[in-house]
Design a protein around this nucleic acid. Structure first.
Lengths: 251, 251
DNA sequence: TAGAGTCAGTTTGTACACAAAACAATATTT
DNA sequence: AAATATTGTTTTGTGTACAAACTGACTCTA
């Protein structure tokens, strides 16, 4: 028997009574996205439409739209008549994703060096600071998340939204890869400091920044080894509640 | 009054009575995708759900899913309560897309050189041949389409599906850019021959292939985008031109 | 006991209906 | 006559119902 639980709070913003229109789908999307990318939902977890619909207090129609979108982004896997599950990247996919990141990030870094301003670089330093704090307190989840944020924010300085969006997709899929294959210890970008590349950029050293990026990404890939894990069926509903609460706190 | 027309034939395959399941959505998607990318539907064209639903003899539900997918690929634009239209890339988007293609194609070409086989190169030569044929007979639509096919098929030789899929998306958006800003004459890849790069690859000249790709993409971009320079209201300008031309023809 | 078949329960796919928003055209007011 | 208000039509957004497909357990048979 499924106990009835009160729906997840999506957080009506700006004094609206209830979240409505596209804002609601967006909120649901963000919640699920965060749950997957921040590794609260293990790869392979089933995502039944009814459960999600009840959890967010909407009809299956809205849920389907969100799942469809996540499927396009390759974060969930939808099979005919079989529903959606959190995607499990294969080893080849994992390699392809990292190779793609090397191409994209190394290719865009020259523009970043050309267009970076001290103010923008300070924003990046702030991300690094928070990343180090999370790491210091042992919050591996947050530290992985902020590491991804750093890479995307860095490339966004290139001013090319198209390439930045592409990278954002690759980074979120990287999180899934780390979730499936990541070794318990390393995982994130601990070996080399993100600070270093900021100094290279500040110095206007485009080629140095490119080399750093290449080396850095190879190290990250190498630290994610091929370990297999078997997930037990988790309490989907409880996890979603937790993530939603976290989201609410962040506003 | 709308005349009732018989539905579009989706082509039931392998002796099935009617196309069903995900195959039907896929078929509808392909039809719409081709219509947009091959420039049968002008950028800005409205795509009302009812019309499409009737045309393909399905309910709006299926149409919505397809439009959603096309929106994710940035080929159509969906605005709240306002429906879907064929996307109209801005000038900045156009530049970003070509810059992204330079990064992706130049970044992946080394792997292509490393992994290309004579058989695969022959397949590419076949595409070039068909492209030249289309061009010779003045079929601009087909020649643009095959030009895009060539670029994607080339990079697919790298063996990296992730980067190939990304490029496929960029190439289809390029077609939209050509449709919105393309000059009547040039447009496609006529200046330099695609054959050249195949010879470089066959010779194992990775750096030469990279330089060719860079140069080639810059030429394509130059032949397309730089004609229109007002980012304020490009569509208004186009419409006014059309109206003026129509007026002139009516006299 | 292993295997095939059947049947109920669950989950997804698709159509449809109704509500809400945008649009267009006419009416109203100054 | 211009600007605004109003009303009717069209189009989109969302929930719900029903059909089809899958899942898993149970039974029957060899």
């Amino acid at each position: 028997m499924n106990k009835k639980r009160s729906p997840i709070d999506l957080g009506a913003l700006q004094g609206e009574e209830t979240v409505t229109g596209s804002g609601r789908d967006e909120a649901i999307y963000r919640n699920l996205y965060a749950a997957i990318v921040e590794n609260h939902l293990e790869p392979g977890t089933k995502l039944p439409e009814d459960t999600l619909a009840e959890a967010f207090a909407v009809s299956r129609t809205s849920i389907r739209k969100v799942l469809q979108r996540l499927a396009y982004e390759r974060l969930v896997d939808i099979r005919l008549n079989r529903g959606a599950t959190v995607a499990q990247p294969t080893v080849k996919e994992a390699r392809d994703i990292f190779a793609a990141r090397r191409i994209v990030e190394c290719g865009a870094i020259a523009q970043v060096v050309a267009r970076a301003t001290p103010a923008k670089l300070d924003e990046l330093r702030d991300i690094v600071r928070r990343e180090q704090e999370a790491e210091a307190r042992g919050d591996r989840r947050e530290s992985i998340f902020l590491s991804g944020e750093f890479h995307v924010a860095l490339i966004r300085l290139s001013g090319n939204d198209t390439i930045s969006d592409i990278l954002a997709g690759l980074v979120s899929r990287s999180s899934l890869v780390i979730a499936t294959y990541g070794s318990p210890m390393s995982g994130s970008c601990r070996h080399t400091e993100h600070h270093d590349v900021l100094d290279l950029i500040a110095a206007g050293d485009a080629e140095g920044a490119r080399e750093w990026t290449e080396r850095h990404l190879r190290e990250v890939e190498r630290s994610v080894v091929l370990l297999e894990e078997n997930p037990a069926a988790p309490d989907l509903r409880r996890i979603l509640d937790d993530v939603a609460q976290r989201q609410r706190r962040q506003r």
